[in-house]
């Protein structure tokens, strides 16, 4: 029983972090209606920014947020503005522009290989950081401190983003764009500026996720791919475009991955995750929290 509780806690904590890694994906999809294949790569960029910030300044890994978030926001903003926007404009009559998806795939390859060239294929981790390997021990039970911090950050980020979209003027403008971009434009909202900002926000959230990962995970050029696939499953499970859906989807995956191996070999849990993915697509294609009718 204690094992079950211990595994469930680990699953919820790790799952919330998975949810956070997928949140940027869901934000960008919700507004731009574009599946961003470069999302894992943006996470990777965030991890390198966090890694260098912490290694060079010796800051606490979470203080790196002060640098990582604005850097990633600006990076995402201009990535959309310079690389993706022109494609958007040339396809403005198409509701879900396929070409943009291909461009994001291009961004993924270019950034991954650029990182490989600049920093080499080495695996890095932040040595001697105050969170590394820390555990809360309650009797037999171990709870990972860096994962706990990560899970708290994930929930806090979800609330912050949700509040921003619901309550602020910019947030409402973004939602307006997501509902009907033409009507939003007619009301005087600069559609492309909103896209830039949304992409920036999505990238910044990927940066937050990166910060939660670096205290206990490795950093290497293709690290994004591992989280990319998981991210897609999570957002489909939770509903594309839904922020609470991302966190809940992440926790479901985390629980399967963490509790499952105690009853079978770890490789089987992957099969279960993909099986669940297919099942959701069959039964409820819009996901747990997705909107049933598309606008």
């Amino acid at each position: 029983m204690i094992y079950f509780i211990e595994d469930s806690i680990n699953g919820i904590l790790m799952g919330s972090i998975y949810g956070l890694t997928a949140m940027g994906l869901t934000i960008i999809f919700g507004v731009l209606k574009v599946v961003n294949f470069a999302h894992g790569t943006l996470l990777m960029v965030g991890m390198y920014v966090a890694y260098w910030t912490v290694t060079l300044t010796g800051l606490h890994p979470y203080l790196a947020l002060i640098i990582v978030v604005p850097v990633m926001y600006v990076f995402g903003y201009y990535l959309q503005d310079i690389v993706i926007k022109p494609i958007f404009k040339s396809e403005k009559n198409v509701r879900e522009p396929i070409t943009v998806i291909i461009v994001t795939t291009g961004v993924w390859y270019v950034l991954d290989n650029l990182t490989l060239m600049l920093f080499g294929p080495q695996y890095r981790s932040i040595q001697n950081n105050p969170l590394q390997g820390k555990m809360i021990e309650i009797g037999e039970m171990f709870i990972s401190v860096p994962k706990l911090w990560g899970a708290i950050t994930a929930v806090a980020t979800a609330f912050a983003v949700y509040y921003f979209f619901q309550k602020t003027r910019t947030g409402r403008a973004i939602r307006a764009c997501s509902l009907d971009r033409d009507a939003a434009s007619l009301s005087g909202i600069n559609q492309y500026k909103i896209y830039n900002m949304t992409f920036g926000i999505g990238t910044a959230v990927a940066g937050v996720a990166a910060v939660t990962l670096v205290p206990f995970y490795n950093i290497f050029p293709s690290v994004g791919v591992l989280f990319d696939i998981k991210g897609f499953i999570i957002v489909v499970l939770g509903g594309l475009g839904s922020i609470p859906g991302a966190i809940i989807g992440g926790i479901i995956i985390g629980l399967i991955e963490s509790v499952g191996p105690q009853f079978m070999t770890a490789t089987w849990t992957e099969a279960i995750v993909y099986g669940l993915f297919l099942l959701v697509l069959f039964v409820k294609p819009s996901g747990l929290f997705g909107v049933k009718y598309d606008w």
Binding site: Y3, E6, D7, N10, M14, Y18, S144, Y217, L226, F227, K230, G254, E257, S258, V259, G260, P261, Q262, A266, T269
Partner: peptide, 10 residues
Amino acid sequence: ATDLSPVVQK
């Protein structure tokens, strides 16, 4: 795998 703590627990 992105999390190996379940394996380590085993």
